[in-house]
């Protein structure tokens, strides 16, 4: 049984293990950041009245671009830190596509290098395509 396991299968398994670890690490890291920011947020403003979440403010509230979030983090603003955790969470599956791509390149699986590149381009279009309107 072992002998007919091709090289490709072995590489497949390594990639699967690696992707599993990467996903777990990403979720863990983001939840730790969110937890830190969240605790800080509660310490600073836990006793304040709840914002009017029944009204949608959207973009005016800030913290939706990389720069705004990073400024919030460096100023140790609780909500900025939470948003950083949110960004790490969203980045986790995107990073997974990158690692799959590397895996398929190592396996020399041209078809799937192509397919993964298509998924990655859709993702990049979504991030940088200015679709927020």
């Amino acid at each position: 049984m072992k002998k007919i396991l091709s090289k490709q299968n072995l590489a497949d398994h390594d990639i699967e293990l690696f992707i599993g670890l990467q996903l777990r690490f990403g979720v863990l890291l983001s939840s730790l950041i969110v937890l830190t920011g969240g605790l800080l947020y509660l310490l600073q403003s836990g006793s304040l009245a709840l914002p009017h979440y029944q009204l949608f403010i959207g973009e005016k509230a800030g913290l939706k671009t990389g720069r705004e979030i990073w400024n919030g983090v460096t100023a140790i603003k609780a909500r900025g830190i939470i948003q950083l955790g949110v960004v790490v969470l969203i980045a986790t599956p995107i990073l997974r596509i990158f690692f799959s791509l590397i895996g398929f390149i190592i396996e020399k699986d041209r078809l799937y290098v192509g397919i993964t590149l298509v998924v990655l381009s859709v993702m990049m279009f979504s991030i940088f395509g200015g679709l927020k309107v």
Binding site: G38, Y41, Q83, V86
Partner: peptide
């Protein structure tokens, strides 16, 4: 949605955890 401001930190924090 993040760029549109749908992700509200005060809601994201308890929901994600």
């Amino acid at each position: 949605y993040l760029q549109r401001g749908y992700m509200e930190a005060g809601i994201a924090f308890p929901v994600v955890l």
